[in-house]
């Protein structure tokens, strides 16, 4: 339905996105995963016709939309990363305006506004001024404004940044519902791995302006089928221990976590005993050890050598 061909963008000679090829089938939910500065927002800005690519094409149902962006704009709903609303107006006034610019009028507009308010769970607060809303509520209205014209494709650029867990959960539920029940095609960008894991059928992993890997969640995890993850919880950080483990030949990746260390090691390697010995040598107190199968986060770490939130 929607695809990009060798999409590239340079800003003053600096490459922001290079040779991005991705495609979305109708009704699919696709994740675009990458750390800050990976080029996700630039990519979706080009797809949504906000900025022109330096080279490459965006195709909608096989037709190029770069030269005639009107085609894609009518079927696209874009949820920007920032809260792009008129905060001095009420939520209802905002939605009415955004509905009008998509050509909705009269009863159809009123009906859609009502439905969207119900969807985001803010029917009772629709007449309130947006600036009186909490961050989570603003995010929900931010999404609502992109849904009014019932778009075929919904592009969401990190829609849950900086909100409380309750609102976040509500938004994720809502997106899942739109995808599963209404068959809306979703392109969801995030640097929250768990969101992408929860929402998306397929994932593109992006770093330094390039797609470095793609596939279904299982396909991506299978990249690490020969590895396993060891989570070590410590009573406090031990920098020397971390450095020592980083030098260890038998450990593929080492990273610090909030509670201790995370190690990716070859599957079946009998390293636990040695790990305890090394920890003992550094007089580190091990609180907990957990061996798990790799997550998408581990895949990302494996592919890029850095954490998603770096």
């Amino acid at each position: 339905m929607l695809e990009t061909e060798e999409l590239s963008k340079q800003f003053k000679g600096k490459i922001a996105v290079e040779g991005v090829n991705l495609h979305l089938e109708r009704g699919e939910s696709v994740g675009l995963l990458g750390p800050n500065g990976a080029g996700k927002s630039t990519t979706i800005s080009m797809i949504s016709s906000l900025i022109k690519p330096t080279s490459g094409d965006v195709l909608l149902d096989g037709k190029n939309v770069i030269k005639d962006p009107g085609k894609i704009r009518r079927v696209l709903g874009v949820v920007p990363q920032e809260i792009a609303l008129y905060e001095e107006l009420t939520a209802y006034e905002n939605l009415k305006f955004f509905g009008r610019i998509y050509g909705l009028r009269g009863k159809a507009l009123e009906k859609n506004i009502e439905e969207v308010f119900e969807l985001v769970g803010l029917t009772d607060r629709q007449k309130d001024i947006v600036k009186t809303y909490s961050g989570g509520m603003k995010r929900r209205i931010n999404i609502a404004a992109a849904l009014l014209h019932e778009p075929e494709v919904l592009i969401m650029d990190e829609p849950t940044v900086g909100i409380d867990p309750q609102s976040r959960s509500h938004i994720l539920e809502m997106v899942r519902e739109l995808n599963l029940k209404k068959g809306m095609t979703v392109l969801y960008t995030s640097h929250y791995m768990e969101e992408v894991e929860r929402l998306c059928d397929r994932v593109y992993i992006m770093d330094h302006g390039r797609i470095i890997s793609s596939g279904t969640k299982d396909e991506l995890k299978s990249i690490l089928s020969s590895e396993e993850t060891i989570m070590i919880d410590l009573d406090r950080p031990y920098p020397d221990l971390y450095n020592d483990l980083k030098q260890h030949d038998g450990i593929l990746q080492t990273m610090e976590t909030e509670t201790g260390l995370k190690l990716i090691v070859p599957k079946g390697s009998r390293l636990l005993g040695e790990l305890f010995q090394i920890a003992d040598r550094h007089q580190a107190k091990v609180v907990n050890v957990h061996v798990q199968t790799p997550t998408l986060e581990d895949v990302f770490l494996h592919l890029t050598g850095r954490k998603l939130r770096d």
């Binding site: 016709s49 874009v78 792009a84 609303l85 610019i101 998509y102």
Partner: peptide
Amino acid sequence: RLGTWDRLIVSPL
């Protein structure tokens, strides 16, 4: 600055 401009640009307007 707020991003509403981009929202208008990606609309059919």
